[in-house]
Design a protein around this nucleic acid. Structure first.
Lengths: 247, 247
DNA sequence: GCTTGTCTAATTATATGATAATTGTGGAAC
DNA sequence: GTTCCACAATTATCATATAATTAGACAAGC
């Protein structure tokens, strides 16, 4: 019964049977142990394997189906869907995938997207932010200057900063991308908590640009922040200097 | 038993009890009929309301929980999550949301994101596309020139074109954004199938740029395509000239 | 050969009725 | 007022049964 490690963004909660089945099957699918071509075990067999009743198995299956990982039909049974069908932006799927891919590649993909989203989000924030939005960004930044760089509070403050900018963009879909960022920050801090202190001033510049209602500057400073962070972390990852991952 | 209309991207399939409960509760939550503050009905009551067994209700709840709409805990019961927690990029959630928002606003949000993603995706495609990727894009474009502009085949070909470009960007997260585009195209065609013929040549220019391995041109042409489409459709939406939506 | 219909068995879909585990709440005790 | 505890409400899990669906095999007809 291989207990897979998972990306613990928050506190690792005590898991129930349902959550265990979901995670175990989810990671197996993402890792490619179960493919669209393989026959998927039938519910009864899964129940035996996990020592769970059919109800639990079925609920787990529905949960995975909602994430686009599998599909379940009468008589046909359960089928793994092709990877293009997976909801990769789902936080759980994202974390499973993080555990199953080479960190450098995962981080590369992630930052490519962040670079598409966040600079423009910062520009929108500079245009649309209300006073309360700017206060929230400023507060998060103030928090960042206070916390210990290696603490989880550092991740929280950093995340809050980036999320507040997305929120200030006044676009719900944009705000949603916060999940991506959360994972990105987690990896960054996991890899090197130095990045936190190194790039603190650059965060301040982004805040200043938004405060000054300067979309162009906001876009530029955010882009610079992301590019530099990416290089910094990617360098560490490639040098194998990252902290051991719990696997 | 109000049968909610739904965004029928593909064929409207005959639905089972589970799917009905999921959709009904999902739309109620998105529309704000059920809020985080309201007490959520308990499983037993939901069962009575829908004429379904507790198993079905529980499976539906798990499905909605996987999409971040609700959370269910022992003794506490089921709780609607705040909107920031919803997985808006989930295709179902996206379609429910489409049915619950003013089309102009929905379309605006959608295109703001598409404009962040697709121009850069086109640029990446110009850099990274393999011969087979370009063939796929070209094929989709050829298909677009053949089909009747008002047919669903037109939407399919259009979607295939945009998806192929995302795929050529060689970034799984990017590819995932295809869901957004699918909905966007659906709305465009629903609103005015004229847009299809009007912007066909611009699609060709994007293809040419990718073929020529010219990232800058790819970015520019895609940006132009999206901007013009947005203006075209938004104009129609605001003038109330859109085809009646089935509600 | 090819299609079209029909039967059968496998698998999920749904129902029912238990028991277990968790935890918010109110009240007792201090 | 605070702490602690028992109770009750609700989901979590289990076990078992029946219904609905349909892939696949096989037969019939053209």
């Amino acid at each position: 019964m291989t207990k897979q490690p998972r990306l613990a963004l928050g506190r690792v909660q005590k898991r129930n049977l349902f959550a265990h089945v979901v995670e175990d099957l989810g990671t197996r699918i993402i890792k490619g142990d179960l493919t669209p071509d393989d026959p998927f075990p039938i519910e009864a067999d899964l129940g035996r394997e996990f020592g769970a009743s059919r109800s639990v198995i079925r609920e787990a299956v529905k949960s995975l189906a909602a994430r686009g990982l599998i599909e379940s039909k009468t008589r046909t049974g359960i089928r793994v869907m092709p990877p293009t069908h997976w909801n990769l932006l789902d936080p759980e799927v994202l974390s499973w995938r993080y555990g199953a891919m080479p960190p450098v590649q995962f981080y590369g993909e992630l930052f490519e997207i962040r670079l598409m989203i966040e600079p423009q989000a910062a520009a929108l924030a500079a245009e649309r932010a209300q006073a309360s939005d700017i206060a929230e960004i400023a507060e998060a930044f103030a928090e960042m200057t206070k916390v210990s760089p290696s603490s989880t509070a550092a991740i929280d403050a950093d995340l809050r900063f980036h999320r507040a900018i997305l929120a200030a963009g006044k676009n719900a879909l944009l705000h949603q991308m916060g999940h991506l960022i959360a994972v990105g920050l987690y990896i960054s801090h996991q890899t090197s908590s130095d990045s936190f202190t190194v790039f603190l001033p650059q965060h301040g510049k982004v805040l200043d640009a938004i405060r000054a209602r300067d979309p162009q500057a906001a876009r530029r400073t955010m882009e610079k922040l992301l590019n530099e962070t990416r290089e910094f972390i990617t360098g560490h990852l490639k040098n194998g200097k990252r902290k051991a991952r719990n696997s």
